[in-house]
Design a protein around this nucleic acid. Structure first.
Lengths: 227, 227
DNA sequence: ATTTCGGGCTGATGGGTCGTCAGCCATCGA
DNA sequence: TCGATGGCTGACGACCCATCAGCCCGAAAT
């Protein structure tokens, strides 16, 4: 009858919880981790929509019911992986802030930004594809994660644009966030469809160079280098 | 709209066929059309993944089994709609070719291209979202339709770039298809996430202007107008 | 060492969707 | 009027999802 005792008071509500409200112990957290890893592995080879809970659970050496104890659905598990990745993605923004965008150095910085972005995308391509997908499908959880990551980069780029506003002689009413957002969108879309480009005989090198020139122009307001 | 006397043998193999190999008559084609319209209607209000065959069939005043007589699956029906839309999309390429890209006129042309593209996207947003989605999911049929449409625009833009190569003083080895592809990607991605931008307080006007300037710079090689 | 107890796990199951097929209905030419 | 062929559908088997009652197990308590 007496359900509430002093020992069961949920004082820490940000604590990790299982589906039934229990606080997982060591063993449980290990299982949860194994499920996450298995999900990440399968994502490398299996299309998002073909990911079956039963397969993930089986691959992790457990049963579907166990999966549901730690995640409400497959997307929730992927979301955890996405948040981890987004954390790493912050490094791109820091990189943008650390570089020099004065004078000629800006072109090199543009090139490096493109290269870093494409590398990051390639490293996490499976996850990023799912994030884009779920966002397009209207999933708010993923939209938020995606936005948080992209916005970080957008803000740092817009700060660069803002700091060069005078040198670039841009109109006072030009919105630096808009420009930065457009550039980040460009990077994201091209990275996502990189192989589509190559299918049409367009080399990644050429694509990268085009983007670097575009970024350089948009940021510095200067004509890109002739060679 | 050419009427072939329907009594003859199936000599034309590109003729429309039902699932069982029959050649649909008047009544059948009307039903097929009704199913297509119903699909288009539902797409306006229902997420792609939530489109049930039974709902489409019911809405068209028929049964699921009938739907399968004319389309192997929901995606096939949407694909038909997408091809129709892609046909309309060719107008964008023609528009690009028709405009003047010499001197100052190029900036106005850039602005108009952006406006036209965004308008087109808004008009067909439900369909285009599904096309993007299915392509991301790896559906080859949709990838092809998407590519055909985008590539048309890319080629026309690359021709413009090519024709201005000397005036723009661009490096000889700069790939105009790569640049054009990047620009089209940018347009597509921004159009798709337009409302995401607005959520962050970025006005569509500002976004459009940023894109117009970027396109102008990339095409003409000139600094965009100060005002 | 034994008991106890709660976290951890799963087999079995009900609900739901999908695509198909055998067979009924409608239309039209003869 | 009467086939004959195109058009349509009810019913069905196969499959996947998510859940829950109940068993297992290890560690703390005695």
């Amino acid at each position: 009858m007496s359900e509430v005792t002093a020992t069961t008071a949920p004082e820490d509500d940000d604590e990790l919880r299982a589906a039934d409200g229990r606080v997982p112990g060591r063993r449980g957290r290990a299982t949860r981790q194994k499920l996450l890893e298995q999900t990440a592995d399968m994502l490398q080879t299996t299309a998002f929509r073909d990911l079956k809970v039963v397969d993930i659970a089986r691959g992790a050496g457990t049963s579907p019911a166990t999966f549901y104890q730690y995640f409400p659905d497959v997307e929730a598990a992927i979301l955890v992986l996405a948040e981890e990745m987004a954390q790493q993605g912050m490094g791109l923004s820091e990189s943008v802030r650390a570089r020099s965008w004065k004078g000629k150095a800006a072109y090199a910085s543009s090139q490096e930004l493109v290269a870093e972005f494409l590398t990051f995308w390639e490293t996490h391509r499976a996850l990023l594809r799912v994030v884009d997908l779920a966002t397009l499908e209207g999933d708010q959880r993923f939209r938020q994660a995606r936005t948080r990551f992209q916005n970080e980069l957008t803000v740092s780029l817009s700060e660069v644009i803002e700091s060069l506003r005078k040198e670039a002689r841009q109109p006072d009413d030009l919105d630096s966030m808009a420009t930065a957002g457009v550039l980040v969108s460009m990077l994201g879309q091209v990275a996502a469809h990189r192989w589509g480009f190559e299918f049409w005989g367009i080399r990644t090198d050429d694509t990268s160079r085009s983007m670097a020139r575009i970024i350089y122009s948009a940021v510095s307001g200067q004509k890109p280098p002739a060679a």
